[in-house]
């Protein structure tokens, strides 16, 4: 399947959030969207599943314009895992996850739906929480439930907005690994917004790097996650090394936010220091 984004622009009032984005995303794949805060990642995702309407441009899913697809039709194809959940009217975990079956629900499907829900809960390791109240869970458990809800939709495309930010490192790794496996096993195009560059680098098939409302770079993790890119987009000094064929980022320093400091002088100082390091390294190697 393919998502084609064609000259999409979006602005809330007069401030543009997305500037002329054109992009093809082919699936199945596990795609990660990276970029600093406020760069338009969530907005882009919301334009794909019609939560927001682009002010100009179109989104095509398998050749069909999203504007011509009803929201219900779209829900059968695209799943969504939001960043945060609404707590006003909490249900049990089972009922919450069952909501994901809504686009597919028929009158008599209760037991069948329960099976799907159960399987998904088991896969995420939270089946023991099934009858608990949603608002009694920890933040990490919340996120797993949200994830389960997205998964039971059995979608072709799954959009996730920072699904692992509140999980501990074990679960972060485990969930991301699972998502990658799912995309392969079930043929889903998974698009995940993430703040953890390393985990994205480790598992993603493709990375979309956004900067200032535009697509800065697209490609495999090795192509996109480079020191220069990170410096420009994230404003950090880093060192990127290779680990089992995937890039791994070691953070060095942040470019100063303080506007009084002369940035080019700082940049010069940093370059000088790195040159010194490299020369001392090569000296060590030689000797």
């Amino acid at each position: 399947m393919q998502i084609r984004i064609d000259n999409v622009e979006f602005s809330y009032t007069s401030v543009p959030v997305l500037n002329d984005i054109s992009l093809d995303i082919d699936g199945p794949a596990f795609v990660s969207i990276l970029g600093p805060n406020g760069v338009g990642k969530s907005t882009l995702i919301h334009c794909i599943n019609k939560i927001l309407q682009p002010t100009s441009g179109s989104v095509f899913i398998d050749g069909k314009d999203v504007k011509e697809t009803s929201i219900k039709e779209l829900a059968k194809q695209i799943g969504y895992v939001p960043y945060s959940a609404n707590d006003s009217f909490p249900l049990t975990v089972v009922d919450t996850v069952m909501m994901g079956r809504h686009p597919h629900s028929k009158w008599k499907s209760l037991d069948n739906d329960l099976d799907v829900v159960y399987d998904t809960l088991k896969m995420l390791g939270i089946s023991h929480l099934a009858m608990r109240q949603f608002n009694e869970l920890s933040a990490g458990q919340h996120q797993k439930v949200m994830l389960a809800r997205g998964l039971v939709q059995e979608p072709k495309i799954l959009l996730l907005d920072e699904p692992t930010s509140n999980l501990d490192i074990r679960h972060q790794l485990d969930v991301t690994k699972m998502l990658k496996r799912l995309s392969a096993e079930r043929g889903i195009l998974i698009i995940m917004i993430s703040h953890d560059i390393n985990i994205a680098a480790k598992y993603a098939d493709n990375v979309i790097l956004m900067f200032q409302g535009k697509i800065f770079d697209v490609g495999t993790p090795s192509e996109v996650i480079t020191e220069d890119n990170l410096r420009t987009v994230y404003g950090v000094e880093s060192r990127v090394i290779d680990d089992e064929g995937r890039p791994h980022v070691i953070l060095r320093d942040a470019l100063p936010m303080d506007e009084r400091i002369n940035p080019s002088a700082v940049m010069a100082g940093i370059r000088e220091r790195r040159a010194r390091d490299r020369s001392s390294e090569s000296q060590q190697v030689e000797s």
């Binding site: 919301h46 599943n49 019609k50 939560i51 009803s70 929201i71 219900k72 039709e73 779209l74 829900a75 059968k76 695209i78 799943g79 969504y80 939001p82 959940a85 609404n86 006003s88 009217f89 249900l91 009922d95 909501m99 994901g100 809504h102 686009p103 629900s105 939709q153 959009l159």
Partner: peptide, 20 residues
Amino acid sequence: SSKLNVMSLGENSAISLGVD
């Protein structure tokens, strides 16, 4: 009523689950 359930998840979630 099941659509109302979906509504109470919040606007974004509701849209993503197929409710206009």
